[in-house]
Design a protein around this nucleic acid. Structure first.
Lengths: 187, 187, 187, 187
DNA sequence: CATGAATGAGATTTCATTCAT
DNA sequence: CATGAATGAAATCTCATTCAT
């Protein structure tokens, strides 16, 4: 019977926070343990290694974002409608899980090779959507480019807001969706 | 140029390569020394610390990109013409200095606070340009958003090409510039 | 027998198996618990420490072998007859309790000093027998040497069989007894 | 240029001493470092891991004993003459390198599986000799049994002397060779 | 009696930096 | 200027033992 409840959850939470703030290598097991309020050794009852914490976090959140995106992408509404919803979903995820989103990006930078071992990545959901839009003739630029424009813009928007360089005003999602839709449909 | 100048350059070169491939903390002084073909102690003849290597690399390449961008941004031609040139310049820098560009991004992720101590960052050049375009009424979205759309898209394009997900075909720069121009000018 | 008695026996059994396979330090309390099918904490209901398990095992099996040997050594038959029976008894013990025999040897290697605290060790039984044979003039080599020849040979035979280098054919005990008897009686 | 000379040699020396006295797991890197007179970290400039120290020691000394034995076993003299020399060589090795011999035995106990990866083990030299003797009809017991008798006896003799139970008198080697020769040739 | 989370001490290993040569 | 052994601090991980449940 656990003395603390959900210690495993707490470890993941603390790790995510610290990794996204300081970096993976820059965060020690001791840092995480201290943040959770346990000792270093206790971490290892829940995870076999620091690396397992890292992988768990990546797969958890990458998959979570994927799920949210794919469920929108597969709705039975118009391409345009779904596109606007996708933009909103993506940004919502970023702003509600800023640590997770930053961590996912960091992971891509530091473990590019490892990323290839994971399935159901966010980009797969978007790629599928872009593909459909392109084949239906609505999206005019090929799917990879559409992906670059959309994901790049949204990610950078999030980072600028996070960095205090940009404001997150009401209607931001709408405005961005508008701009991006025009960009990829040549309207 | 004397031999030691060469060594210093080589150290920076190797460090940049390794940092961009594996991460900063993940790269040891020994790794760098081995890559250069000298020993650990010798590194300290040229740099007082590992951190100095990191800072030198960041300021060097961030400034270099800034210089390239600002010189285009300040040309005496039309906004549109300069915009197309900026896109080309940005992508050229990425594809010609992929390690440097990755390193700059990584540095932003890991040392967000520290970045604020540097001046003449690439985004400053672009921000200035967007500002001018917005004030002249040609660029319709406010400068931060324009920056997000442009930088985000270009960066993501580079990463997709680097990751083997997208091809770098001839005309890519043109196509991107076209798409982005439409996006931020509402044409 | 009550259930906890069974558990205690099982702990000793698992510990013996693991110690003999992997070594004492190399076997953890968790390893033992898992092998028994209980948890770490439960072990401490039956033993105050890992060391107590180790000591219990050593004294149990060292004494058991001693008992078997001394009862043969003290029989009222001829020296030769008893010698042949001793060889058989020794080898039987080895082959029927290979883990115990390996553990006893390992304990001798790792805890040479501690061994001196135990009484009724197998070698005492054999030493006594050799002494008698030497004094009666039947065994020609002094008892220590006789002990070395006999114990060394039997132990090594067991190890060679265990290691798959030698076959345990029928009549092996006879053959060995024959050879050893000749060796120590100069016949 | 080394600050200490032969640090690597000293590490091996200290490790051998401590391993043979206390056991492998029971000896820490700190113990070894302290014995050598350096810090723990310095060990790792000479060996990549504790395990490498262990393996190096085993292969070094197992091979050394093998070399000594095989060179005697392959001499062009009579079987009997060579046998007497082998006994002397074996015991000499034990008494001159007691730590090494104990360590080799310990390694066999703790890493039985790993031993199979090594070539040129002492037993191979002796096995070859016994084989020749058996085929020539001089040695009457099959080679595995002869090996068990000879190696077992010599090893046990060494251990008894080491343990203070037996004296190493002049002529011990002769006496043992005599006894063993009779045992395996049925004379 | 049993569980298994947690502790705490310590083991192995890593690595930026120093320093004797 | 260069070498590379050594330091020393810290990081990851292990594990016998304790203890709340």
């Amino acid at each position: 019977m656990p003395r603390h409840q959900n210690t495993k959850e707490k470890i993941l939470e603390s790790a995510l926070k610290l990794f996204s703030e300081k970096g993976i290598r820059e965060t020690t097991i001791k840092d995480i343990a201290k943040d959770v309020g346990i000792t270093e050794g206790a971490i290892y009852r829940h995870f076999v290694s620091k690396d397992q914490i890292v992988s768990t976090l990546f797969s958890t959140y990458a998959e979570r974002l994927y799920e949210e995106l794919i469920s929108v992408a597969e709705e039975k509404t118009s391409i345009k409608n779904r596109f606007f919803k996708l933009v909103k979903t993506f940004l919502n995820f970023c702003f509600e899980n800023p640590q997770a989103f930053k961590f996912i990006n960091l992971f891509h930078y530091l473990r590019a090779e490892e990323v290839k071992n994971f399935q159901n990545l966010p980009k797969d959901a978007l790629m599928k959507f872009m593909d459909e839009g392109f084949k239906k003739g609505i999206i005019k630029v090929r799917r990879e480019l559409a992906l670059a424009v959309v994901v790049g813009t949204l990610e950078r928007t999030f980072l600028l807001v996070e960095g205090g360089i940009m404001e997150r005003e009401a209607g931001l999602e709408e405005e961005l969706a508008e701009v991006l839709w025009k960009a990829i449909t040549y309207q």
